[in-house]
Nucleic acid binder design. Structure first.
Length: 289
RNA sequence: CGCAACGUCUAUCACGCUU
């Protein structure tokens, strides 16, 4: 069962949804009972492919087999609803979880472990954020406060991203300033990305410095966001300098990094350097692309 | 029993899909 759990997780992560389903099928044939871990992966696969009716069938199977659903599975379910434009339904699941956690759902037995957690709220907040439903987001934050669900770094990142994407940069910065949880590399890359798009380079510089003093390590995503800003300005020197800095700091360049660099070189008419990048990609095992 | 890890959320370019 553990082997299948690992397999299904890997398939889900790499977008091979049919293989997740095939693995579940394989387990049934072999008579290996599926657990919440397997069902969570299955729900993730169905949610990402938009197969809502098949997902409902899986939920029915769990009920039929008498397998109680745990919080992580419900969170995955909420994610699936959110991805498929059913935020209302996601909210309903979240409320059911809460009611069951306090024993307020009638004949259904109480289960405190079903209490909605920061993941639950982050998922719904993200869906609301992508739809720019700021009032509903505020209401959810109030609910979190009442129910003593902590605003973790992940939750704050979702809030910051929602505001920043909508161009509400100062609101986004205000959340970062007031958050109790420590900002992480995602917090900084979200802000830096959108501040750069708004040409607020002074704020970017401040954040980059703050990040260093907070000992938050840059990663590939973060550097790619910076790199793209250089590309948009046509700043080949800065892009090159960043690429070198990444190498020195041991930050892996990925396909995105190279796409940005290629475009930067080509637009600057430096096709020889662009071609050299191809060799470098091969050395890093990115040549197939 | 305790502790830890693990399955669920959030950030980057392009392409493609949908509009």
């Amino acid at each position: 069962a553990y082997t299948f759990s690992l397999l299904m997780k890997a398939y889900l992560k790499s977008g091979q949804f049919d293989k997740v389903k095939a693995a579940a099928h394989d387990m049934k044939i072999r008579g290996i009972p599926l657990t919440n871990h397997h069902y969570t992966a299955l729900i993730g696969a169905y949610g990402r492919q938009g197969s809502m009716s098949e997902m409902q069938q899986v939920l029915g199977t769990m009920d039929f087999d008498g397998i109680p659903k745990d919080r992580t599975l419900y969170n995955a379910l909420i994610y699936a609803y959110c991805r498929n434009n059913a935020v209302e339904e996601a909210m309903r699941v979240k409320d059911d979880m809460y009611n069951r956690s306090i024993g307020a759902s009638g004949a259904v037995p109480m289960d405190p472990s079903l209490r909605p957690d920061p993941f639950t709220y982050a998922t719904i907040l993200d869906a609301l954020g992508r739809r720019e439903k700021f009032d509903e987001m505020a209401a959810l934050r109030t609910e979190m406060l009442e129910r003593e669900v902590p605003e973790t770094t992940g939750v704050c990142n979702v809030l910051i991203d929602a505001h920043a994407r909508a161009g509400r940069l100062d609101a986004a910065l205000a959340i970062k300033t007031s958050m109790n949880a420590p900002p992480d590399v995602i917090t900084y890359s979200t802000l830096v990305l959108h501040l750069n798009r708004a040409s607020r380079s002074d704020d970017v510089a401040l954040l980059v410095a703050e990040m260093a003093s907070n000992q938050v390590r840059e990663n590939t995503y973060f550097c790619n966001a910076l790199m793209d800003a250089h590309r948009k300005k046509g700043d080949v020197e800065q892009a090159q300098a960043l690429k070198d800095r990444m190498k020195v700091s041991g930050i892996r360049a990925d396909l995105v990094t190279f796409n940005i660099l290629l475009d930067t070189y080509v637009k600057a008419g430096r096709s020889i350097e662009a071609l050299e990048l191809r060799d470098e990609m091969r050395e890093l095992g990115l040549g197939e692309n």
